[in-house]
Lab assay of single mutants.
Amino acid sequence: YFQGQLNAMAHQIQEMFPQVPYHLVLQDLQLTRSVEITTDNILEGRI
């Protein structure tokens, strides 16, 4: 994955969860590489 793709995914998640800091979303995406998994992590309070 290149950074631009991760940034696009992070923006997509931020639209759904504007209360979660962008850098935390991006940090999780770098591990998961998945909008779905990061979204689940937010919903389950891991982020």
Score class of each variant (00 low, 15 high):
32 T>W: 04
5 Q>K: 08
35 V>R: 07
31 L>W: 09
30 Q>N: 08
21 P>D: 14
44 E>Y: 11
5 Q>F: 12
45 G>A: 04
38 T>C: 12
29 L>R: 00
12 Q>L: 11
32 T>P: 01
3 Q>V: 07
3 Q>H: 05
33 R>N: 14
47 I>E: 02
14 Q>K: 12
26 L>M: 09
41 N>E: 01
27 Q>P: 01
1 Y>L: 11
29 L>Y: 01
30 Q>C: 15
19 Q>P: 02
30 Q>W: 14
27 Q>S: 11
6 L>E: 04
8 A>P: 03
29 L>K: 00
15 E>V: 12
18 P>K: 05
6 L>W: 08
45 G>I: 03
44 E>W: 08
15 E>W: 07
46 R>N: 05
37 I>W: 08
40 D>R: 15
40 D>I: 14
19 Q>S: 11
36 E>A: 10
26 L>P: 00
44 E>Q: 15
6 L>Y: 06
37 I>A: 10
18 P>S: 04
20 V>I: 14
4 G>A: 14
22 Y>N: 12
22 Y>R: 13
34 S>F: 02
37 I>K: 12
28 D>Y: 05
34 S>V: 03
10 A>C: 05
46 R>F: 06
26 L>D: 02
23 H>P: 11
33 R>S: 07
10 A>D: 00
27 Q>G: 07
40 D>H: 14
8 A>W: 11
24 L>I: 11
27 Q>Y: 09
33 R>K: 13
1 Y>F: 12
26 L>Y: 10
18 P>D: 03
35 V>W: 07
14 Q>C: 12
41 N>C: 13
45 G>L: 05
40 D>V: 14
8 A>N: 09
39 T>W: 08
21 P>H: 07
39 T>R: 12
28 D>C: 10
25 V>F: 03
29 L>I: 07
9 M>V: 07
42 I>K: 01
2 F>T: 15
44 E>A: 14
5 Q>N: 08
13 I>S: 00
17 F>V: 01
2 F>M: 11
41 N>H: 08
18 P>E: 03
41 N>P: 01
24 L>F: 06
1 Y>G: 15
13 I>W: 02
45 G>Q: 05
29 L>S: 00
7 N>Y: 13
38 T>K: 00
32 T>D: 00
5 Q>W: 15
34 S>I: 05
21 P>K: 05
34 S>M: 03
24 L>H: 07
13 I>A: 01
43 L>H: 05
15 E>D: 10
31 L>I: 13
35 V>Y: 07
10 A>R: 02
44 E>P: 01
44 E>I: 08
10 A>Q: 04
12 Q>M: 13
44 E>M: 14
35 V>P: 06
6 L>D: 03
13 I>V: 09
47 I>A: 03
24 L>E: 13
41 N>R: 08
41 N>L: 03
9 M>K: 05
29 L>D: 01
38 T>E: 00
31 L>V: 12
11 H>Q: 13
41 N>T: 02
7 N>Q: 14
39 T>P: 00
4 G>T: 11
38 T>H: 01
10 A>L: 09
27 Q>D: 08
12 Q>D: 07
20 V>D: 06
9 M>Y: 10
28 D>N: 05
31 L>G: 06
34 S>P: 01
42 I>V: 05
3 Q>S: 05
23 H>Q: 10
6 L>R: 02
33 R>T: 06
7 N>W: 12
36 E>M: 09
26 L>I: 10
12 Q>R: 12
8 A>E: 13
18 P>A: 04
6 L>C: 09
41 N>G: 03
31 L>T: 11
43 L>F: 05
29 L>Q: 00
4 G>L: 11
34 S>E: 03
30 Q>V: 11
9 M>I: 08
1 Y>P: 14
8 A>G: 07
16 M>F: 07
11 H>R: 12
10 A>I: 08
32 T>L: 03
20 V>Y: 11
4 G>Q: 13
46 R>Y: 06
39 T>L: 13
32 T>I: 00
37 I>L: 12
18 P>T: 03
7 N>M: 14
28 D>L: 05
17 F>W: 05
1 Y>K: 13
11 H>Y: 09
19 Q>G: 12
5 Q>P: 07
32 T>G: 01
15 E>G: 09
12 Q>T: 10
32 T>N: 03
45 G>P: 01
13 I>R: 00
23 H>K: 06
11 H>N: 09
11 H>K: 13
12 Q>V: 11
27 Q>I: 11
20 V>F: 11
26 L>S: 02
27 Q>H: 10
29 L>N: 00
27 Q>R: 08
15 E>N: 09
38 T>L: 00
13 I>Y: 01
16 M>S: 07
38 T>Y: 00
26 L>W: 10
25 V>P: 00
14 Q>P: 00
18 P>N: 03
47 I>Y: 04
38 T>F: 02
43 L>G: 03
21 P>S: 08
13 I>N: 00
31 L>D: 08
27 Q>T: 09
14 Q>F: 12
28 D>M: 06
33 R>M: 15
12 Q>G: 06
1 Y>Q: 14
3 Q>F: 03
39 T>C: 10
15 E>Q: 13
